[in-house]
Simulated scan of single mutants.
Amino acid sequence: MIELDGVGRSFTVRRRTGPLRRQTRVVHAVRDLSFRVEPGEFVGYLGPNGAGKSTTIKMLTGILTPTSGRIRVAGLDPSRRRTTLARRIGVVFGQRTTLWWDLPLRSSFHLIRHLYKVDHQVFARRLTELGEVLELGPFLDTPVRQLSLGQRVRGDIAAALLHDPPVLVLDEPTIGLDVVSKAAVRDFLRDLNAERGTTVLLTTHDLGDIERLCRRVMLIDHGSLAFDGTLPALMATAPAETTIEAVVTHLYTRNAPSQAQ
């Protein structure tokens, strides 16, 4: 469902070094990246800030064109078939919204239906299903700008799935959510993958998301794939547990100091 072969992405960065001088350097955000995600997999895509996760996501969705290599998502080249691909994938960026800020959530969904040319009856059935499992009913008629973060994220997930795509790409979908909202989003994503067989690629810094959702994890570091396997296998590569002992030799109180061992 997702295939990358030798993919690279470089950026040219210019920095002012004087009144009339600039320094140019090339930054390699992604280097020779290769992996495959099979239909129905739920894969966690991990890495520190600046490792290349977001760059990879943008290339998978056609926002960026790779400098080198080959990408196929749902059988399509994202950079060449971006419009066609948009009907086969759903994308959620946790720190951005695809909803219309001043419109009620329901109106945003209707606009998305027209953008994806979803049949009215199919849309109605899909919205009812998503509304029930994501508990959207109480705020469907609330303007997006008045929604809480948890409500807005659930709205974004519903918007990404209204056209029933076989691939769902999630970039930090639970960032900033409270415990209850996180649990609701995780339960929904797990059921979506198990019941509908939707292929999910998830980037996150929340280990709880990975532990509860992903059977496979990939770790990217400095633009290259550093690990591909199960979470227990990844944790086994970590250094052994370290114990630090501290000995207090002086204990002070507010009124007067005292000696202690």
Rank of each mutant, 00 (worst) to 15 (best):
R186T: 04
D221M: 04
P166T: 08
G150H: 01
R196G: 00
G150S: 03
I210M: 06
D221Q: 14
L192P: 06
L177I: 09
D156V: 05
D191F: 00
P166L: 05
R212H: 13
D209T: 09
A233D: 15
D156P: 01
P166E: 06
D221A: 09
L219D: 06
D191I: 00
E172P: 08
V200G: 04
D228G: 05
V180H: 14
Q151R: 09
F227E: 08
E211H: 01
V153G: 05
L189V: 03
A183L: 14
L161M: 12
E172G: 02
I210D: 04
T203N: 12
L147G: 06
L189E: 04
D178C: 08
A194D: 13
V153K: 00
L189S: 05
G229I: 02
V200H: 01
D178G: 14
V179Q: 11
Q151Y: 08
L231C: 10
R152A: 14
G197C: 07
F227K: 01
R190T: 12
L177R: 02
H222Q: 15
S224W: 01
R152D: 08
V185M: 05
L177H: 00
E172D: 11
E211R: 13
L192Q: 09
T203K: 03
G229D: 05
L170F: 10
D178W: 11
L234C: 03
D156M: 05
T203M: 02
G155E: 03
L168C: 12
G176S: 11
L162E: 06
L213Q: 05
G150V: 10
R190H: 14
G176F: 09
V167A: 09
D171M: 12
V167S: 02
R154N: 12
L207A: 07
L168M: 13
V179A: 15
R216T: 02
D209V: 08
L177K: 01
I210R: 06
L201K: 04
S224T: 15
F227T: 02
D187G: 14
L161R: 02
I157K: 10
T203C: 14
L202F: 11
I220G: 04
T174L: 08
G229R: 03
D191P: 00
E172R: 09
L225P: 11
H163I: 13
T230I: 06
A226T: 06
D164H: 13
L202N: 06
A158C: 12
T199N: 03
D209I: 07
T204Q: 07
S181H: 13
S181T: 10
A183S: 15
G197V: 01
V167P: 01
A159R: 07
R154V: 08
L149P: 08
D171E: 14
H163P: 12
F227S: 04
I157D: 00
P166Q: 09
L192A: 11
V200Q: 09
T199K: 11
H205Y: 04
L219I: 13
L161T: 05
V180I: 15
L177A: 07
A160P: 10
L201H: 02
L147D: 13
E195W: 00
E172C: 09
D191G: 07
G229E: 10
L170V: 08
T198E: 00
G155I: 01
G197H: 05
E195M: 05
V217Y: 03
G229S: 07
L202K: 03
I210C: 07
V217P: 03
V179L: 15
P166W: 07
